[in-house]
Amino acid sequence: MNRAGSSKVVQHNQSSMLLSDQDREFQQREPTLYTVKGMAILDNDGNRILAKYYDKNVFPTSKEQKTFEKNLFNKTHRANAEIIMLDGLTCVYRSNVDLFFYVMGSSHENELILMSVLNCLYDSVSQILRKNVEKKAVLDSLDIVMLAMDEICDGGIILDADASSVVQRVALRTDDIPLGEQTVAQVLQSAKEQLKWSLLK
């Protein structure tokens, strides 16, 4: 009955539990695409707006996740210092008005790769919200922001790190974006459509 989804998760859990610390250390050296351990958007009280964790070994329960987020927020909300190491993770962050964006990776990860993911997350949200990056706007377009996070990182693998291509993929109607922030392809596409319609008329 329950085979389809959950059995897979159980298998995965077991295999990860069997790993000793040494194995994990070894795995960290193994080249892999699984780069991102988690992404989060918190508000200015440190409460979660959206958060995703991709590694079953890193904060498996939602309680642990929230404790970590509180901790992270306390360490980062005053100093805008962009990067911190916490609980064995490298966390890069960025804030605006009442929002805090975080991307977490293992302590061995290339900090600049994480930074590029963070920038992509921030810029995508900024484009979706038309530069109006604040909590209320995020909540109003929560569905699109969720889709954007899903398009940036899939299960820990960076899917896309280019903000405009992410925005393009999250099904935001093209005419919603101001002209200046569309890609050339988008502009051409919309120009073509308009031409087509004018011909039909």
Partner: peptide, 15 residues
Amino acid sequence: RLVYLGIKELSSLAE
């Protein structure tokens, strides 16, 4: 697209 997201979230919980 939200349905896809929902499928992914619920795939490990639902039968």
